[in-house]
């Protein structure tokens, strides 16, 4: 078993996903005449970034703008590195060069959290750059556990796996999604990033009760939540991270906090990205709702 850096869920607070739109704000000279350091200006407790955006050429630490942005953010708040290309469910294991690049970023930025998705994304050396669905079967569990092990060995730490939104159930599944997720996490001894929005999306797309999902999750392994918006397209819900977190997601978030206690959260908003203040207000709502349910400072 891998020795975790922290065996008890840390209190990392509530934050937002940093997107390119916000880089100028991070780098602009501060209103106090400083050189652009944030000086408390972020107003959130945690920031999540997409890991691969900070892979430098050839797996090096990047230079220029990405480096300046991430170092300035990291100087102010803990950072969660959120990958999109590990593809733990791909039958082809993650390339060594990818794992080395990931390790380089982790060693450089010393993130509070390293996460990716329980999905597959490549086959035969071709990358879809999407979070593709796995069948909820024993053979897929074995592949994912093996690949999570490779990643955790390469990093020397546990990672968090996120449940993904999906539009197609891959045939022959023998268990519900939540059981699949927890079985991978238990066997790989990894942690879970529970995306509340994805549960809401999948509940509609696959016809289950979102509360049943929560009931099937082992809270000890849940170290982070994702909150986001989606679009209801009638026959299905589409996970596009557009707009504010909808009420349905907030409601399930409250149920999750009531069940699992205080858990770090990140609000994702990827389309029509709003000003930082709007995003920050969403993180503040997540913090306030959690505080009302489990106590602590609002």
């Amino acid at each position: 078993m891998l020795a975790p850096a922290m065996s008890v869920r840390p209190s990392l607070g509530h934050g937002v996903g940093l997107r390119l739109t916000h880089y100028d704000r991070i780098l602009a000279p501060g209103a106090d005449g400083s050189d652009g350091s944030l000086a408390g200006d972020l107003g959130v407790e945690l920031v999540e970034v997409v890991t691969e955006n900070f892979f430098g050429p050839g797996g090096t630490v990047p230079g220029g703008r990405p480096r300046a942005v991430l170092e300035r953010v990291r100087a102010q708040v803990p950072v969660a590195l959120h990958g999109v290309s590990l593809g733990v469910g791909s039958v082809d294991p993650p390339p060594e060069e990818y794992l080395r690049a990931l390790r380089t970023v982790v060693d450089w930025i010393e993130p509070a959290i390293v996460s990716d998705h329980l999905c597959w994304g490549s086959v035969g050396g071709h990358y879809a750059h999407d979070l593709l669905p796995l069948p909820y079967r024993e053979d897929a569990i074995a592949v994912a556990v093996d690949n999570v092990g490779r990643a955790q060995d390469a990093l020397g730490r546990r990672i968090l796996l996120e449940n993904v939104s999906s539009y197609a159930a891959i045939g022959g599944g023998t268990m519900p999604e939540w059981e699949f997720l927890m079985e991978v996490a238990r066997r790989a001894d990894c942690l879970v990033l529970l995306d509340i929005n994805n549960i809401v999306v999948n509940a509609k797309n696959h016809g289950f009760d979102a509360l049943d999902y929560l009931a099937g999750v082992d809270g000890d392994r849940v170290w982070q939540f994702h909150l986001a918006g989606h679009t209801d397209r009638g026959a299905y819900k589409f996970d596009d991270h557009v707009g504010p977190v909808p009420d349905e997601v907030w409601s399930l978030y409250e149920a999750a906090v009531a069940r699992f206690g205080e858990v770090a959260s990140i609000v994702e908003w990827d389309q029509e990205v709003p000003p930082w203040e709007v995003l920050r207000a969403q993180a503040e709502r997540a913090r306030d709702l959690a505080a009302a349910l489990v106590g602590g400072e609002a």
Binding site: Y167, A168, A169, I170, G171, Y236, F238
Partner: peptide, 23 residues
């Protein structure tokens, strides 16, 4: 047909098309 399970509301090919368009 064995791989992608659909239903009357959203048949299998339509579900796969969501991924194809996203790709």
């Amino acid at each position: 047909g064995r791989m992608v399970t659909g239903d009357a509301r959203l048949p299998g090919p339509r579900r796969m098309t969501i991924y194809a368009e996203s790709y």
